[in-house]
């Protein structure tokens, strides 16, 4: 389990990284936290000719607020996001979700950009950014693009990033104060990739009806899923058990789970409905009516 021979270059800034990617094309691979890439190298399932190490790009490790969005630089360590009071206040779903991402040691190295760019549909961060309606910022020789998360994830481990582009930031819309969030993850063990994970953010208006709802699922499709139908069903209703059950019941129709060694597709479909119901229930309980 030793990596194959590979070239290595340290990118000092985004421009250098993009230059290296452009030069080496699809044979190159961005090395961020390495929590997914290095095992692929060791199993010799990935064999790039050049690794472009973006860890030295200090400018990409940041958490800041910008125009109603929380912007997280690509090389920001997941652990820093998890522990950030700014993040907890603006997008409380993030720390909640991050606690399910591997273990502390993985999150110490793992980056937000790396996880999003890796685009594992069973992972947590891609679904968080998708269900919240976030955006992905990429930079390349043709400049900077901001891509809606739902357009960014295009298939299993594939994204709208071109080979010569680097993911530089992820933008999460700020959730209004009083929003209740919940993450219900079913994994074989804590820290494993989800069999199914459900994400919910619910905000109640002054009359106690839902005036903002964001729902998402991991592990149920080739891409992270946002549950528009369920959101629509819930919006404007009081989050009663009946309303939540009805909204959750729309979930199985909008996903295409596959079978693997841990769970058959049918089970995933069933769990998707159950877990999103539980997540909505908890998020609703946690939401505070704001005036």
């Amino acid at each position: 389990m030793k990596p194959p021979a590979v070239g290595y270059a340290r990118a000092g800034d985004v421009q250098e990284a993009v230059g290296l990617l452009a030069e080496h094309g699809t044979d190159s691979k961005v090395l961020a936290g390495g929590q997914s890439l290095v095992p692929l190298l060791s199993f010799r399932l990935a064999r790039p000719s050049v690794l472009v190490d973006v860890n030295p790009i200090g400018d990409l490790a940041y958490i800041r607020e910008d125009d109603g969005a929380l912007v997280i630089g690509a090389t920001t360590r997941q652990r820093d996001v998890e522990l950030s009071p700014v993040v907890a206040e603006a997008v409380p779903m993030l720390p909640e979700a991050l606690r399910h991402v591997g273990h502390v040691t993985n999150r110490n190295r793992g980056t937000v950009g790396g996880s999003v760019a890796h685009a594992d549909s069973a992972a947590e961060l891609p679904t968080v950014v998708t269900c919240l309606g976030g955006e992905i910022v990429v930079e390349g020789p043709r400049g900077r693009r901001t891509i809606a998360a739902e357009d960014y994830f295009t298939g299993t481990f594939t994204t709208a990033t071109e080979y010569d582009e680097l993911l530089t930031a992820v933008r999460f819309p700020r959730l209004p104060a009083g929003t209740g969030v919940a993450v219900e993850e079913l994994a074989r063990r804590h820290g494993d990739f989800a069999i199914v994970a459900a994400f919910a953010a619910v905000h109640l208006g002054p009359d106690g009806t839902v005036d903002l709802v964001r729902l998402g699922l991991s592990g149920v499709d080739s891409v992270p899923r946002r549950l528009h139908e369920a959101e629509a069903a819930l919006l404007g209703t009081r989050p009663t058990a009946e309303a939540i059950t009805a909204a959750a019941a729309t979930a199985p129709n909008t996903i295409r789970p596959s079978s693997d060694v841990h769970a058959p597709a049918g089970y995933r479909r069933e769990m998707a409905e159950l877990l999103i119901r539980r997540a909505i229930t908890t998020a609703s309980e946690r939401s505070e009516v704001t005036t």
């Binding site: 290595y8 929590q35 290095v38």
Partner: peptide, 25 residues
């Protein structure tokens, strides 16, 4: 050697890291 067992955990600049998930360079 694929980052799951934790036996190679070290402290890198004050934080734990898995030594099998990093390159020496």
């Amino acid at each position: 050697e694929h980052g799951v067992c934790g036996a190679c955990t070290i402290m890198l600049d004050g934080r734990t890291a898995r030594a099998c998930l990093m390159l020496a360079v």
